[in-house]
Design a protein around this nucleic acid. Structure first.
Lengths: 110, 110
DNA sequence: TGCATACTTAAGTTTCTGCTTGACAAATAT
DNA sequence: ATATTTGTCAAGCAGAAACTTAAGTATGCA
């Protein structure tokens, strides 16, 4: 139950981990190398690389290797997906709320 | 590592699970009882109750028990938190992108 | 009163995640 | 040339998370 899931599923799963959100926070200020990213994160570099793989597969991060250093940066595509998911749902429940409000205000014609 | 975490952490963790997102999707159309919620979800009612507890603690769902039936509904507060987290980060990286664009367009005075 | 419904709670099992270790590869510096 | 830096890969393990089972509670109904 983990191979062929849609992009929005992977994006939500990726953001579910606090370490990965910390990585996103750091990348928000600009592109950073893997080791710089790992430095403040009380864990081995290998663990950070694993988090980065998940972030990259989920479309939240993009990276490029030049020489021996891999530089990571935010990929907005993934964020757009989860924002869309939320706003789509909110549209549904707000529409319901509006209808309810209209009813409570008293049914009007026209 | 799970007791004193901020609300935004709990909200992201809650939405990381596909079953919980399915519950949110159903609730987006309006309030539903626990057993109605559980019906299409290939798992026991007890499991669904556990998911609901997490959703409720994360501020994404609210519920009220009347008689013997508990009715659940969306609580927008939790969603506002995670949308704010995303837009805050995007503000950062878009600002950077704007500055970059300005540089590439050629430095101008004034 | 007796029985079904709609949960609730606790405990145990299984599966998944995050992390470490260790060995390795490639680029760069000395 | 060799040492150092930067990252990659593959096991393996401990704890967390999801789920089940089973027993219990409170409400509503006949």
């Amino acid at each position: 139950m983990h191979s062929q899931q849609p992009a929005v599923d992977r994006a939500f799963h990726a953001l579910g981990d606090p370490t990965r959100r910390a990585i996103i926070e750091k990348l928000s200020h600009g592109p950073v190398s893997v080791s710089t990213l790992a430095e403040p994160l009380d864990m081995t570099l290998a663990a950070v690389v694993q988090h980065l793989q998940i972030l990259e597969e989920s479309g939240l991060v993009r990276s490029e290797k030049i020489g021996r250093v891999r530089t990571c940066q935010i990929e907005p595509k993934g964020f757009a997906l989860i924002e869309k998911w939320i706003t789509d749902r909110r549209t549904l429940w707000e529409r319901r709320f509006d209808r309810l409000g209209a009813l409570l205000a008293g049914p009007e014609e026209k």
